[in-house]
Design a protein around this nucleic acid. Structure first.
Lengths: 234, 234
DNA sequence: CGGTTTTTGTAACAGTATGTAACGAAGCGC
DNA sequence: GCGCTTCGTTACATACTGTTACAAAAACCG
């Protein structure tokens, strides 16, 4: 994986420093900008793979800036906001943001979103579950990543289709975190699937083959793996 | 089990709002202070179970404040800092902090630390959390937090919708304490719900499915869970 | 006390979201 | 081609949840 260049546009210096520190630790190259002017300057001076853009930028308006950047060039943008109000969210999408995340966010979730957007933009390979040499336990079930085997609490072995297995791995990579259908589709590298009810069906089938209570529905949001995941180490 | 009172001392208003929103959603009573003076005032004016103290407080020094509070009374303190440098950490522990966490932190991790410190301090039993395998008893009823199951006194099992369960958890986290509709809505992370009569309906439906006398109406105020809550430990 | 106002309980309704059966297209091994 | 599996679409049933409307209860006030 090449070094991804991220432009973080955030006017709160403390917040910016925190996020930058975290993201750099995760192996990303982070450039900071604290204003519209700074962001545009940074965009001109070098390659940028992804922009993390705060909606509230003091005087400047993040939404307007997003539209402006979008009009000029094709760089993926994730909007960040302290408000989760829907109109803000819609405003973010309307101007072409690729994703949206509300503070306070789970840093890991932010990273997952960043990866998803980068992957969608064709700038990075899929990052979910590369390590195949592990056995995971979740709610009495086992998943052997090496053999792609799923074992029920009673010891029965369940056979999942490739797609069902992929879905399970998405959930296993994000336990207890609600995933929207869009996020799931993105993680499956199949943005089309987010359109219809394909994800619903997929989840339904996985539920049937495993345990309906394993995957909980978050109404209006998506689905969550309702169990913690631990390494089995055996 | 009583409501846990948390004093959040943080001078960055945005950060404070984010953290407070998250913690309140988890069933904690959060008081905000943005300065040394504010923190001390809040400490005098009411019971506080735990202090979340930001090290960087503009003019004021969080480390010194920690020492000062510690000298005066025995309240657990978790230091929060943008820096994870070891000497900072040691400085925090040196003046009596019970734990130390660096930004950016995973919210769930923060909650885990809070729970751990509260438990260590013997203030109260652990918080209600889906990941905990706790079973709660209240007025003959049982709530299994792990399975999200509610059992009636006769042994019947009742199925609640997601929202009803969320409401029940809000009450279980605040037994015998009257909650306004606004507080309930805030705890449900749905401020819109405070507008109309959505909360009324929600309470009505929970009453129907459980026991009408479990939740008492405080006319002009809101609703109370009219039963004490204990851990079942089985 | 009786009338008025405020507050709450709840039935009925509606809009939306979700579960799932049934179907059919596509792929695959033979 | 044929039988099989996989998987998305459609269609419909069901479930969830907020709104409205009105009745009941409580509070208020002369």
């Amino acid at each position: 994986m090449s070094l991804h260049r991220l432009l973080l546009v955030e006017d709160d210096a403390d917040m910016a420093a925190m996020m930058a520190a975290y993201l750099r630790r995760q192996g990303l190259h982070v450039t900071l900008a604290d204003s519209r002017a700074g962001a545009l300057a940074a965009l001109k001076s070098g390659r940028v793979d992804l922009i993390l853009l705060d909606v509230s930028l003091g005087r400047d308006d993040g939404v307007a800036l997003c539209a402006e950047i979008r009009a000029a060039q094709d760089v993926p943008i994730i909007m960040v906001s302290a408000l989760s109000a829907d109109h803000q969210r819609m405003a973010g999408y309307a101007v072409g943001a690729d994703d949206y995340i509300a503070k306070p966010f789970n840093p890991d979730l932010l990273l997952a979103r960043i990866r998803a957007v980068l992957r969608r933009a064709g700038r990075a390979p899929s990052l979910i579950h590369r390590r195949r040499d592990s056995v995971l336990r979740f709610g009495g079930w086992r998943y052997d990543a090496r053999r792609d085997e799923v074992t029920a609490p009673g010891g029965w072995q369940v056979t999942l289709s490739a797609r069902e297995t992929a879905l399970l791995r998405v959930f296993l990579a994000n336990p207890l975190i609600p995933l929207t259908r869009e996020e799931i589709a993105a993680a499956l590298d199949d943005d089309e699937a987010a359109e219809g009810r394909a994800i619903d069906m997929l989840v339904g089938r996985l539920r049937q083959k495993t345990d309906a209570s394993l995957i909980r529905t978050e109404r209006g949001v998506g689905y969550v793996l309702a169990a913690d995941v631990t390494r089995a180490d055996d």
